[in-house]
Design a protein around this nucleic acid. Structure first.
Length: 278
DNA sequence: ATGGTCGACTTTCGA
């Protein structure tokens, strides 16, 4: 087992329909652990065999019929954790304790609610649900943070682009769900519980545009390039050294996946973790 | 200019 492992996250918008693309991504990038969101199937419909054939022996699925859903597939041994964040009972999260070279870390895979169209919790239940879901995460990690120096990885589709250069047009999107000041604030509050490190910005300047999602509705999606950085990989401070070994080269947002055949509207991202530094 | 497109599973919802 090498000392450097690769973690990945991808909102695939249907695990079954996207399976050929997922297989291609795995062959190109060989992640050791891959968190999937929006699998859009029940657990018994998840393509376990395809992942087993690619060496992912360990699979945790939180599925439901038709909508949402998260799954984590891993080459490394995992133990399922018992956590719950969704007030509506949606399958939007799966937490796993992972063992790598005798080191343990937790891998929390999230699909935070998108929040509907109107950025007002009074008139839009979906926006309120998004805030409630993030509040449940914040409560959980606040309690955890009081106890010690845990090795945590949080990944997934957070459905919030926090920074000015995490969207194609900051001013144009200030009232658009995913980039409102209120969402940015509650995400920062979640991040502050542990002082989570935003891996995409660890070695890339805040002024550089970074996107992980582009609407299906856009024409000439890559030419117009009206993207948002909705997907995230965060690590707790105990893993800071483990993400710094390779600097900027340790992280990647795999933009070309957006123009593969039958693409997801999100692209995957990867982060290397140097186990010798934990 | 306020559309437009996906995917699952229905005659519509969530994104």
């Amino acid at each position: 087992m090498p000392n450097i492992i690769k973690l990945a996250t991808w909102n695939v918008n249907s695990a079954r329909l996207r399976l050929p693309s997922i297989e291609r991504f795995i062959k190109e990038e060989s992640p050791d652990v891959l968190g999937l969101q929006e699998i859009k199937c029940q657990e018994d419909q998840f393509p376990f065999e395809a992942f087993h054939a690619l060496g992912y022996e360990h699979i945790h699925v939180a599925g439901q019929k038709g909508y949402h859903g998260a799954a984590t597939v891993s080459k490394l041994p995992m133990t399922r954790m018992d956590t719950d964040f969704c007030p509506l009972g949606h399958a939007r999260h799966v937490s796993s304790q992972i063992t790598a070279n005798k080191h343990n870390f937790e891998f929390h895979n999230f699909y935070i609610p998108a929040g509907g169209d109107v950025a007002d919790p009074v008139v839009n239940d979906k926006f309120q649900h998004k805030l409630d879901f993030i509040a449940a995460m914040t409560n959980y990690f606040t309690q955890r943070a009081a106890k010690g120096d845990d090795r945590l990885v949080l990944v997934g589709d957070f459905n919030i682009a926090p920074g000015e250069h995490d969207v194609w047009g900051h001013k144009q999107l200030l009232k658009v769900v995913s980039h409102t000041p209120l969402e940015v604030e509650v995400l920062a509050r979640l991040q502050n519980t542990y002082g989570f490190i935003d891996c995409s910005r660890r070695h890339i300047d805040d002024a550089e545009k970074l996107y992980s999602w582009w609407s299906y509705r856009a024409r000439d999606v890559m030419k117009s390039n009206r993207g948002r950085r909705l997907d995230h990989i965060w690590v707790s401070p105990a893993l800071a050294g483990a993400v710094d070994t390779l600097g900027r080269d340790g992280h990647a947002i795999h933009v070309p996946c957006r123009i593969w055949d039958k693409p997801s509207d999100h692209v995957p991202m990867t982060q290397l973790i140097d186990l010798s530094k934990i």
